[in-house]
């Protein structure tokens, strides 16, 4: 295999800084909101709510990654990615507002699986090694973001939505490029270190609970999409992309968790695989998870807002 050319992270950081955009760059009152039919609106609302929270969950993942980054430049890149995921969530919330899905001050309710993901991130993410976070985050980005965004652009014909997602997609392509570059860097570590990291974490409550959280979250999204008429193949194709992009790296295949997620992805993309029986049962079971057991929603989760401009300080929900 010919050695792959390393990405210049300083150049990438500069590119990221140069390509920042704001909610205020978009005319949220431009025509096109009427293209959303009344029939489609409730389904789209549930979908957008999940999407927006997934961005927020991804953001929290990057915050954890920034603490583990192998170089100060990559740490700074993750700091931007953390903010950019938040920007995507804010923009998606602004779209929901535009489409009349949110009352004044309303914030969409996160599903039980999202709440679980939040709890997991808040409890375990900062303690996870880079080799775990650096593998899971690309999977979430490629699989969830990739499939969901594609679906939206096919189903929604509002030009503002397309304008927003063009910007989001541009950001995401940089995220994915860096994600897989770092994954390859992780794979470059000594096999012994990779094995120790993997073995030391595979049996930890953090990773086990993480897996228990991740499986129903993914299947719930899959089921929602299918319910809305999306061909599940689109989600599967996105998941296959994870393997494809990973295999482009020279050393990525050496990361044990990459192999686990790859095998898992193969099960997910096979609709006849018995895996789905288990996963869908987990989705159902999670619905019965007593809400009282959830800890209070962390404050980072309350930072989302659809307001492009803020003046003064508001504390609490939708603070900015």
């Amino acid at each position: 295999m010919t050695p792959t050319k390393r990405m210049d992270m300083d150049e990438m950081l500069q590119k990221i800084k140069d390509r920042q955009w704001a909610l205020a760059d978009i005319d949220w009152t431009a025509p096109g909101a009427e293209t959303i039919s009344d029939e489609f609106r409730p389904k789209l609302k549930a979908f957008m709510a999940d999407l927006c929270w997934i961005e927020n969950v991804g953001a929290r993942g990057f915050a954890a990654m920034a603490k583990k980054a192998p170089t100060p430049t990559i740490a700074e890149i993750y700091r931007y990615f953390h903010a950019e995921e938040q920007r995507h969530a804010n923009a998606e919330l602004a779209l929901m507002k535009r489409w009349g899905m949110l009352e004044d001050g309303e914030v969409p309710e996160p599903s039980v699986n999202i709440r679980m993901a939040i709890e997991w991130l808040d409890t375990y993410a900062d303690d996870m090694p880079l080799s775990v976070l650096g593998t899971v985050i690309p999977m979430l980005e490629v699989a969830l973001d990739g499939a969901l965004l594609k679906f939206l652009l096919e189903e929604v014909h509002d030009p503002v939505c397309h304008q927003v997602f063009e910007k989001i997609n541009n950001d995401e392509s940089r995220h994915i490029a860096v994600d897989f570059e770092v994954l390859d860097l992780i794979g470059h570590a000594k096999a012994r270190k990779l094995a120790i990291d993997f073995v030391a974490n595979v049996a930890t409550p953090g990773l086990i609970i993480g897996a228990l959280m991740y499986v129903p979250l993914l299947n719930r999204m899959r089921n929602n999409l299918v319910g809305m008429g999306l061909q599940p193949e689109k989600l599967y194709r996105a998941m296959e992309r994870f393997e494809k992009l990973g295999n482009r790296g020279e050393f990525t295949h050496r990361v044990p968790l990459f192999q686990v997620l790859r095998v898992h992805a193969a099960m997910v993309v096979d609709p006849k695989h018995p895996y789905h029986l288990v996963a869908n049962t987990m989705v159902k079971v999670s619905e019965y998870y007593p809400r009282a057991l959830f800890r209070p929603i962390p404050t980072w989760f309350k930072e989302l807002t659809h307001e492009p401009t803020t003046k003064g300080v508001k504390k609490g929900m939708n603070a900015a």
Binding site: Q20, R87, P308, T310, K311, A320
Partner: peptide, 14 residues
């Protein structure tokens, strides 16, 4: 011109 724009996409008018 009106304040500070942060990377989460918001303008802080100050």
């Amino acid at each position: 011109p009106g304040g500070i724009q942060t990377s989460d996409g918001l303008q802080h008018e100050v």
